[in-house]
């Protein structure tokens, strides 16, 4: 892997770019990880290059598997507030039983 990192041909992504992507992904990466991921990233992008030759400009993307509309949910409440409170306490270590909030470091309000 380290060998690959020194291979200039495989470096297709800059430090700056990978840092930007890490920021968007909310991942704190140390220098070693950054190096490793950068190399893998480059190799993966190389893999993607095979797609470049394929001309699909005229292809329309469609997302549906069916032409029939899927049944939707009736507007009904199926919920119990009390049970939910207990469930929050059971599921989350960050649930503040006193206040009912999930506690986090200060959310800085934008000025």
């Amino acid at each position: 892997m380290q060998d690959d990192a020194n291979n200039p041909e495989k470096k297709v992504i800059s430090d700056e770019e990978i840092k930007k992507i890490a920021q968007l992904s909310m991942l704190n990466l140390n220098q070693d990880e950054l190096e490793m991921l950068k190399t893998d990233f480059g190799n993966t992008l190389k893999l993607f290059e095979t797609l470049e030759k394929k001309d699909v400009d005229s292809v329309e993307v469609s997302y549906e598997s069916s032409k029939i509309s899927q049944p939707r949910r009736n507007d009904e409440v199926l919920h119990d507030n009390k049970t939910q409170k207990q469930q929050n306490a059971d599921t989350s270590p960050y649930f503040n039983k006193k206040t009912g909030y999930f506690d986090v470091p200060p959310v800085i309000e934008t000025e």
Binding site: V77, H79, N81, Q84, N88, T91, T99, G100, Y101
Partner: peptide
């Protein structure tokens, strides 16, 4: 002004105790 949320059957009543109207989907 629906009774339940857009993607979950939790209620939409205003002013409830924090987080009691958020179900597994909302959380």
């Amino acid at each position: 002004k629906t009774k339940s949320k857009i993607f979950s059957p939790a209620p939409t009543v205003f002013g409830a105790e924090p987080n009691v109207q958020a179900n597994v989907v909302d959380l």
